[in-house]
Computed example of a mutant assay.
Amino acid sequence: MNERDIWVPGNVDANTPSAARVYDYLLGGGHNFDSDRQLAEKLLTVLPARDMARLNREFLRRVVLEMAALGIRQFIDLGSGIPTVGNVHEVVHAVHPDARVVYVDYEMVAAVHSELMLAEEPNAAMVHADMRQPEQVLRHEKTQRLIDFSEPVGMLMVGVVQFIADEDDPWALAAQYRDAIPDGSYFALSAFTTDNAPAGMAAAIEVFKNSQDPIYPRSREEILRMFDGYTLLDPGLVYTPQWRPQQPELADSTAEASRSNLYAGLGIKG
């Protein structure tokens, strides 16, 4: 059995690009197909997609460490994608080895590879489910085993809500997940926006149109609504590199922010 046989499920559609595999390619991963790479290369002609992916991944690391510093020891990562270096459990286990993490994704390659990677990891698991079905996610046996909903939870929707159409009501989905977690829980989100590069985002919508995951970038006001019921922590909803950067001088860097094209924030419930 070769490496490809291990990570490619027999019924996966390799000819239709998926967002999870495109993201994997942009981050330098190897769990993608020609169709994903072709879409990613088209995307790179209209947006600085590698910078967007890198800056989003750096935000994920910083926000997980921030939640860990605030006392969070259990996390649900919705739309987690294909595991690459710097996944949530790797980040948090570096400071709290007993922290528990549930990953959620409906993409088959993401689910299979995550299950392989986590086979010997008792404090993390992959739930193969669609985040648009909160009851299925929250009542899943793995979620119930690892997450104690009487204690604060770190809920993550990082780089995923742009794949949820208005008709699927991402605002209602965010509210359903919010209502499932207790006061003192945190909600981290990042999402594509049309605000910074409207022409590029319009072109990106066309690039993704025939993929498994069309995109729906939104304005700052639309994204901010997903934090209803939370109090945003400083610095509020900002571009990913402006959210508590490790190099403070980047917080005011227009050039760095212009490559992001994702808003990001962290809120506390209650």
Rank of each mutant, 00 (worst) to 15 (best):
A197F: 07
K209G: 00
A174K: 04
F208L: 06
Y186R: 10
A188C: 11
T193E: 13
A175W: 04
A203D: 05
I205A: 03
Y177Q: 08
E206H: 07
L173H: 03
N196Q: 15
K209M: 01
G184S: 10
Q176G: 00
A197L: 13
T193H: 11
I181Q: 02
A204D: 11
F192A: 05
K209W: 00
K209Q: 08
T194W: 03
T193A: 10
G200C: 05
F187K: 01
A180M: 12
D195K: 04
E206L: 05
A197Q: 13
N210S: 10
Y177F: 10
A172F: 06
A199K: 15
G184L: 07
V207Y: 02
A204Y: 08
F192P: 01
S185Y: 06
V207N: 02
N210K: 07
D183K: 09
S185R: 06
A180K: 12
I205D: 04
I181N: 01
V207Q: 05
I181Y: 00
D195N: 12
P198F: 09
N196P: 11
A202Q: 15
D183Y: 02
L189Y: 02
A197M: 13
D179K: 07
A188I: 14
K209E: 09
R178K: 12
R178N: 07
F187M: 03
S185P: 13
D195W: 05
S185L: 06
F208T: 06
A174E: 09
A204V: 12
V207G: 01
Y186Q: 10
I205V: 10
F208H: 07
T194A: 04
A202F: 08
A199I: 14
T193Q: 12
R178I: 09
L173K: 02
S190I: 06
I181D: 00
R178W: 04
T193M: 11
A180G: 13
P198Q: 13
I181A: 03
A197T: 14
A174L: 09
G200W: 04
L189Q: 03
A188V: 14
P198I: 12
A174N: 11
Y177C: 05
L173G: 01
A175H: 09
T193V: 15
